[in-house]
Write a protein that binds this DNA or RNA. Structure first.
Lengths: 344, 344
DNA sequence: CATGTTGATGTTAGCGCTGCCACGATATGC
DNA sequence: GCATATCGTGGCAGCGCTAACATCAACATG
């Protein structure tokens, strides 16, 4: 962190002096400027190594009005989805040489979003990624005249801000097609809260697939992502005798539902097949292990950062012109033991 | 983000001009310097409002060699504990007017820790909080000659770095005392991985409490925090006929264990009582709802930030001399329905 | 009344870096 | 052969702010 046993950390001038060049040449070497002779470059790099020089990000940002930090606005980072997305973004950003600054939203209204974005702007971030899976947050984001590059996750409400998301419709179709393929003719769906954007896509995929197969959709059930809401829905379904297959909006609800069935002597998958969504780490170890739809959050993170860097560099004169990433990340079906052909 | 419809954002000089003072006076107002007349202060603040002026953090940091951002190093932010701690820290930091920059460790070795800390140092953070619950990470941290203020979470290995943690020993004692109080004479323990620091405290509290009561400790079982490892341990215990009470190292393992018991017709709490640790959101909705030890991660976050600000300001000439926070956060017993008196 | 003391303010000098322009030195044009 | 393009380099200015000193009035002290 400091030039061994020296009082203060080395600055660019120290490097310049040691290499026998001007500090400007050091700057050029550090910024991959083309016109530096290989010999000089090597001399400078050696001096950098020797002094263990690390450029000062603040000075850099001030002088070049550009920082190497991106901001992430997120909500409820304890939920599996948002937490995983945040992790994916962090990894991708760091791989691209960017630091990551976070703000967690307490409330999902307009003013919360404004505060979050201002807090990040105050830190002079180069751009922001907003994990805003709820309609309210997405609306707030899109209504804002923001001054930095931005990318939204799971909130493609249109507008100018690029959005990256897992293709929820496809995920839901995979789940329902799998159940229909096994021979089920009636597939129930327990959705997440109606104000989450993911919820809509999953309902759409579920309903669409049934329609394509010429089958009527049973009444939609609505939960709140929690195991409890899955349990409660499970109790309701347990009272009926026409339930052989359920597509749950997430794994926690699937888990709660499985418990309700278990209590009522309904066996999974013998009597009822269940498909979840997310592939949480526990899914593999439930009894029975849960068939579910896996979302590749790392890929979402990577695409977010790709899209954001594109937006950031669009403002620059000589950007490397990155390709626009595909906004839809494909989910995959993970086959486990909670699904089987209907008995009769 | 910019003075309404102007080309570029207002800087301190613009404010100064509008208020009819020097830019230095503006700086003084913004930094609560005492010697500014109330009239001037009001005039400056009005100008700030009018121009929607926001100070540039980079320039501030450069000039005052002090930033308003703290760094957080964490590991596996998808686990409930670390994720909650991170959230608590973020909340507390923001309340104190600090931004939060994160780095997630991929590997827990020395070099991973060095890289993480250097990445944060490059961002000129004012201090770092390291969530390092494993012995390896804690060791790496303590072996490092770091140049910034630091606080460790859940890793009080001694040394100069202040550490904040939930009092694991007390938590375990609460759990075991509760079971003994109900009349159980033999309390089993399924611990977490041996290289986690929390694990040691919980084992110590478990063993100590049994010793205090003059009871022998049954063989220790070791899991890996996952529901699966709890399930496996549950299968082993199900084979025995001397099991009436188990203290699980976390809620996921308790959950897996409950499922194993359920499969074997062992009723919870009628036949076996189970206590978990963490109080994850699902705990309340398991069947039966899980008695567990709640860790107050928000409080941990608050104390971390308090300790860190203390360390940061210790380097300053005129710190407000904050009191040293108590390094141990007290956990509490949350009584639910997974525990009962033994049948006899 | 000269002198120190205080409070409110302005002035100057950087913090460590990058952008831009200027300079000398080769390489290229006709 | 001389004007011109090009390369490698240095010099200077300035990013927006804070620290330290300088200033200047108003007041208290003997």
């Amino acid at each position: 962190m400091r030039p061994t046993s020296q009082g203060r950390a080395a600055v660019m001038n120290d490097v310049a002096r040691l290499a026998g060049v001007s500090h400007q040449t050091v700057s050029r070497v550090l910024n991959q400027h083309p016109s530096v002779s290989p010999a000089t470059r090597e001399r400078v790099l050696e001096a950098v190594r020797q002094l263990n020089y690390r450029p000062n990000a603040m000075a850099r940002g001030l002088a070049g009005r550009r920082s190497r930090v991106i901001g992430v606005v997120s909500f409820d980072t304890i939920l599996y989805g948002p937490a995983s997305t945040l992790l994916g973004i962090e990894r991708a950003a760091r791989a691209a040489g960017y630091g990551v600054s976070i703000v967690t939203l307490e409330q999902l209204d307009h003013s919360g979003m404004v505060n979050a974005l201002e807090a990040l702007a105050d830190q002079s971030v180069a751009g922001v990624v907003v994990i805003a899976p709820q309609t309210a947050a997405a609306a707030a984001l899109h209504s804002l005249p923001l001054g930095v590059a931005a990318v939204a996750v799971e909130s493609n409400v249109g507008g100018e801000i690029p959005a990256i998301s897992v293709d929820q419709v496809t995920g839901a179709r995979l789940a329902v097609q799998h159940l229909l393929g096994l021979g089920h003719r009636k597939v129930w769906h327990l959705s997440g809260p109606r104000d989450w954007l993911e919820t809509h896509g999953r309902i759409e995929g579920w309903r669409g697939t049934l329609e394509d197969a010429g089958l009527p959709a049973p009444p939609l059930m609505t939960g709140d992502w929690s195991a409890r809401s899955g349990y409660q829905a499970g109790l309701e379904l347990a009272r009926r005798d026409d339930v052989t297959a359920v597509f749950a909006g997430n794994d926690q609800m699937a888990l709660g539902m499985m418990r309700a069935f278990h209590e009522h002597g309904i066996r999974v998958p013998d009597d009822v097949s269940i498909v979840g969504f997310d592939d949480i780490p526990e899914a593999e170890f439930l009894s029975p292990p849960l068939t579910t739809i896996r979302q590749d959050f790392d890929e979402v993170g990577r695409r977010c950062i790709a899209a954001l860097l594109r937006a950031i560099e669009a403002d620059l004169p000589e950007g490397p012109d990155r390709p626009e990433p595909d906004p839809h990340v494909a989910p995959t079906l993970v086959l486990r033991r909670s699904t089987a052909a209907p008995k009769s």
